[in-house]
Design a protein around this nucleic acid. Sequence first.
DNA 1: AGAATTTAAATAGCGTGCTATTTAAATGCA
DNA 2: TGCATTTAAATAGCACGCTATTTAAATTCT
Lengths: 146, 146
Amino acid sequence: MNPERALLLDNQLCFSLYSTALAMNKVYRKLLRELELTYPQYLVMLVLWEQDRLTVSEIGERLYLDSATLTPLLKRLEAAQLLSRSRSAQDERQVIVTLSESGRALREKAESIPQRVLGASACSVDELQALKEQLDRLRARLNTAV
Amino acid sequence: MNPERALLLDNQLCFSLYSTALAMNKVYRKLLRELELTYPQYLVMLVLWEQDRLTVSEIGERLYLDSATLTPLLKRLEAAQLLSRSRSAQDERQVIVTLSESGRALREKAESIPQRVLGASACSVDELQALKEQLDRLRARLNTAV
DNA sequence: AGAATTTAAATAGCGTGCTATTTAAATGCA
DNA sequence: TGCATTTAAATAGCACGCTATTTAAATTCT
C-alpha cells in the first residue's frame, strides 16, 4: 500500500481496533452499571475471583497495567468495600489485595454479563474465538515491539 | 460455555480487545512523539488530511467521538497551531475546523507511520486486513446494540 | 555493618472519553 | 410574530492510563 492510501482512515486496522474497543466499553458501561463497576474495575474483579490475595504487581501483570493506574482504582474498590489492601508481612513493599465478603458475593451478579455481551456482539462463539486468537497474537507482537 | 468458565479472563474476547488496543496505543505513543501528537489527535489529523474544513460533529461522526471529547482536543491542536476553529457564518452553532499551513505540512512527517506500525505488528497485510474486517463488523453490531 | 542499588507502590500531572448539564443559535409551529 | 423545541458545541466532573518522579523497604556488595 502506498503512503497516500495508508494514511486513509478507512484503511487503518488500528482505528478499527481503537473504535471497536470504545464501542465494547460502551456496551459494558451499560451492563456494569447495575454492579456499579467500570470496565477496568470489572477486570480487576475477574482476576481476583480467579485468584484472591494477589499483589498489585500480580494484578498488573495479568491486566498489562501498572501501579499508577491500579493504585487509585483499587482504592475506589476498597472504598466500595469490595476488597481490602494491606502491606505484606513478608515484604512490606508489597500490597496484598483481598476480596471482602461482598466482593466475593458480587461474582454471582456478574455471571450473566458474558452472555449478555455475547448477545450484544451478535456474533457466533466461533467467530469471536477466532477474533480473540488473532488479537492475542497481535498484542504479543506489539508488546515485544515496545 | 458455562458461566463459570465465561468469567475466566483468558476466555474473554473483550479483554483481548481492550489490552490489544492499549498495546497499540503504546506503539503509537512512541512513534507519534516526534510529531508531538497523541493517538486521538493523530486520528483527527488523518480525518482533516482527507477532508479539510469539517465541523466538530462531522469529525466526531468519522471517529465515533462527541464534542465533549473533541472540543478540548481541538483546542490543544489549535494551541499547537496545527488548525484553527471558527464559527460557521451560515450556522453560528457550528464550528468549522481548518488546517493551518503547518497542519497540512505535518502530513509528510506522518507518511512513514503506517509502515512502521505494520512493522511493529509483525503481521502480514492480509492478516491485518482480515482482522480489520472482523473488527469493523463487530463494531457495527455493538454500536447498534447500545 | 553500612552504603549503594534495586524494587513495589504511590503520587503528580496530563490527555482522553464519558455522562449530564449549560449556552446559544436555528427551527417549528400556533 | 413569539414561544417552544431542537440542535451544535462547550463545560463540569469523574475514571482511567500514561510518563516521570518519589517514598520506603529489601537486597547487594564491599
